[in-house]
Each structure stands twice: as C-alpha cells, then as structure tokens.
C-alpha cells in the first residue's frame, strides 16, 4: 500500500508570503484524503512538492517513503499525478500520449493495451486516434486523469481532478475515484464540497499555507450544526398557516408557494420541534439542511475575504 508524507515542509518563493509553513502529515494505506482551502492556500504547491516539481525551502516530502528530490524515478515509480492542467504534445494522439506514460512506468505492450482499455471504460475517453491538440478541455482532463491511472499506481495525487468537466463527466470521475480509493491512496485537492464529501474519508483544511484541521470527514461534519433548513410541503401553504412554525423558528421566509426556508438555533431539540410543527401544517415532502455540512465547516474554519480583513 502506498503512502505520502510531508515532514516539516515549508515553501517560500522569491516574492510574497510563505506558500507553506511547517506542514506535517502522513497518510498510508487505502482511502481518499481531501485537501481543502481557498485559492492561494498552498494546495497545488503541496502536490507539486510531493512530485518533485518544487523543492521544499525546509523539511522533506516523501512518496512511498522516497524523497523525490533525492530519487525522482524511485519516488514517482508508483505514483499517478494530475497537477494543474497536464498537456501531452498536441501533435500526438490519445493512444500515443497514454502509451508514453505506460512505457515510462514499465508496462509491456499487452499491459499498455489493457490499461488503455481499462481507462477507456472507466473514463469514457475520447477516440484514441484523436489528436490531443483537438481535444476539448473536458476530454483533455479525462486523458490526463487516465494518464495518472496508467499502470495502476498505488498513490494518486490529484489537483482538482474534476476541473473543467461537465456534470456528467464529474459524476463519472467521482464514481471512478470511489472505486479507486478501495485499494489506492488518493490525495485530492478540490473546491467542490459535494465531491469531497462523496469521495473522501479524511480531510485536511489548509489556509495561508498552514494546516487548520485534519480529521475524518464524518467527524468534521458532525461538529457542524446546520442552522438553516428548507422544508417543502406537498401543497401550497399560506403564510398564516405557518404561525406554529414561526413560534419555534428564529426566522422564516417563503421560497415558493410550497417551499420555505427556516432559520433556527441549530440544536437537535429545536430541529425535532420544527419538523413536528411543519408536519402539523401539511404533509412534508422534504426537510433538509440548506447546505452541505462540509461546506459549513469550511466556511466556519476559513474566514471569507470580507471577514478576513
């Protein structure tokens, strides 16, 4: 099973504040680790350090126990990486681009063909004879992801893997990642909270180059008490009929004739009373938090720019 580790890693560039400050964490085995943080938090920098595209200013990065700065070939031997927007040579076709990766990773001809078929089935790749230069952004991203999977490496380092994909492609990639994490170690940065909550088991929150929180996804979500729910009735409801709900809620607003948004103190007791009050008005079709718990956790941990100042 694969592993990756950052041991006291800091990274500074010539200008600007440090991109990363004394980052330390290690994961090994199988599963998916989400890497969350605002733009400029240092997520891509971290991934680049792990594959040796950047050199740490202090500390060491290890993949499968090997520092890529010491032995790049050995460190990356069992690693598939998708950083930023990888672009194979535009003159080559999809098959040639994947073939290059397979050869670099020590696959024989038969295994390359099988791996290309597997990636084709998993990611619905564009026609293999199509030139890379003619691919759409989404197609290119899927080819890049396929290149990370070629040779079945045990560690996958993915920088916003669904960036540039349409909804159907996102579903496809999420499904693929959910399969992969059963026996691979996936480390993925993302801005898509739904994607992270769907795929990841562990989370690392990063801001201004520092780790704010590391924990299991369910624990992080468990810390958050949503203070807002949307309720949908099976029929039109007059505002006057909502007086019983209003008595329990902190605030109430109509989203449509059947849908209402209710703010409350976030406690389970109030939530139970609210649901009962709603059900006494009319049959309830849906009663759900307005946003993902993970998203609320993110917003709670990482101040928005206006609050930041």
């Amino acid at each position: 099973m694969g592993s990756f580790e950052l041991a006291g890693v800091s990274k500074s560039f010539r200008t600007g504040p440090p991109a990363l400050t004394d980052i330390s964490f290690r994961y090994e085995g199988a599963g998916a680790v989400g890497y969350l943080g605002p733009n400029g938090a240092g997520k891509t920098t971290t991934l680049k350090l792990l594959v040796g595209l950047l050199r740490p200013s202090a500390g060491h990065a290890y993949v499968n126990g090997v520092d890529p700065m010491v032995d790049r070939k050995q460190a990356l031997w069992d690693v598939g990486a998708l950083i930023e927007t990888p672009e194979p040579y535009p003159t080559l076709n999809v098959l040639e681009a994947l073939d290059a990766v397979g050869r670099a990773r020590g696959l024989n001809r038969d295994d390359i063909d099988r791996e290309v078929d597997r990636c084709h089935a998993l990611l619905d790749l564009p026609p293999l004879g199509q030139r890379v230069g003619w691919l759409s952004k989404g197609q290119l991203q899927r080819v890049a992801l396929a290149s990370a999977l070629m040779g079945n490496p045990s560690v996958l380092l993915l920088d916003e893997p669904t960036s540039g994909l349409d909804p159907a492609e996102r579903v496809l990639v999420r499904r693929t990642l959910n399969q992969l994490k059963r026996d691979h170690l996936v480390f993925m940065s993302s801005h898509q909270m739904f994607e992270v909550s769907e795929v990841c088991d562990q989370l690392v929150f990063l801001d201004h180059g520092r780790v704010l929180l590391r924990d299991r996804v369910d624990r992080v979500a468990g810390r958050i008490r949503s203070r807002e729910v949307d309720v949908e009735f099976d029929r039109r409801v007059d505002p006057a009929a909502m007086s019983g709900v209003r008595a329990v809620a902190a605030d109430l607003s109509a989203l449509s004739e059947r849908r209402w948004r209710i703010s409350f103190d976030g406690s389970d007791a109030t939530r139970v009373r609210l649901l009962a009050a709603c059900q006494s008005v009319a049959p309830v079709v849906q009663f759900a938090n307005t946003s993902l718990l993970l998203e609320e956790a993110y917003l709670e941990l990482i101040p928005r720019p206006a609050e930041d100042s």
Binding site: R72, E87, V101
Partner: peptide
C-alpha cells in the same frame, strides 16, 4: 511554461 511539464515531469523518469 505549458502543461507539457505537468504531463512529462510527473512520470518516473529522471530529468
């Protein structure tokens, strides 16, 4: 300067 590096430099090949 282009995405080529993100394709080639992450492969297990010495520079």
């Amino acid at each position: 300067s282009t995405g080529t590096g993100y394709y080639m430099l992450v492969l297990p090949i010495r520079r």
